[in-house]
């Protein structure tokens, strides 16, 4: 559903993404790994349309979306879940969710989706009248993800470090939400380096180093290759 051909992108004057080609199919999970500054976040932002690529093509469901503006990509069903959350702080929790549903016009459908979100995240139902800035870090991250998966037509999720700085309870909750997405045949591209999470979800991986993909394969293979992990991820497997 997502195909990237030789993508190059700059962040200001910095040459960050230096020629990346990838494919993601429905029901796939692709873990983007790599050290800080490898260009992972910039890569996700370029797919979403926050950053215009200097070269290369992005195809989504067979359509060339390289020159499509951010909002059109969102309407086609791509969702970006930023690592720094970027909620709408002065809006209430429920309004944050409604923003994600703002192109649906039937009232019943909107209520259905809200109900669905509240069954996935029961905590948010209790908090729905609070402003987003009043939530705790973990609750904010729940909302960040809930807001993105609220729309029924969202098909591809670009998730940036979803479990960063979260307690284990929240992190495993997020892992199970991602597993559900995959089960529903949606595509997920996720920047995450926690080995336990990768083991739990499975799927494919791609290691980025200095803006390029240096290694690709299935997570299972990666887990058996101590060498790759130590070289590019700087984590010691236990």
């Amino acid at each position: 559903m997502l195909e990237i051909q030789d993508l190059h992108a700059y962040l200001g004057h910095l040459y960050v993404v230096q020629g990346v080609s990838l494919r993601v199919e429905r029901g796939d999970v692709l873990f983007i790994l790599g050290r800080n500054g490898a260009g992972k976040t910039t890569f996700l932002k370029t797919i979403m349309g926050f950053i215009n690529p200097s070269r290369g093509r992005i195809f989504y469901e067979g359509i060339d979306i390289t020159s499509k503006p951010l909002y059109e990509r969102a309407r086609m069903g791509i969702r970006y879940i930023p690592d720094n959350r970027r909620l709408f702080p002065t809006l209430t929790v429920e309004e944050n969710l409604l923003v994600g549903l703002s192109d649906i016009h039937e009232r019943k459908k909107i209520l259905d989706r809200l109900e669905y979100i509240y069954t996935v995240f029961p905590d948010l139902k209790k908090l729905r009248k609070l402003r987003a800035k009043q939530l705790s870090g973990g609750q904010q991250q729940m909302l960040n993800i809930a807001r993105a998966i609220a729309h029924p037509d969202a098909k591809l999720f670009l998730i940036d470090e979803p479990t960063e700085g979260l307690s284990p309870i929240y992190a495993s909750k997020i892992a199970s939400v991602i597993q559900d997405l995959v089960r529903e045949d949606r595509g997920v591209v996720i920047v995450e380096t926690k080995p336990w999470l990768m083991k739990k979800i499975g799927g494919m991986y791609a290691i980025m180093n200095n803006g390029k993909i240096v290694s690709q394969g299935s997570v299972k293979d990666l887990m058996s290759s101590r060498d790759l992990i130590e070289r590019y991820l700087g984590v010691t497997m236990s």
Partner: peptide, 8 residues
């Protein structure tokens, strides 16, 4: 064209 460019 539409002028709004998405930049940082």
């Amino acid at each position: 064209s539409t002028p709004y460019k998405n930049k940082e």
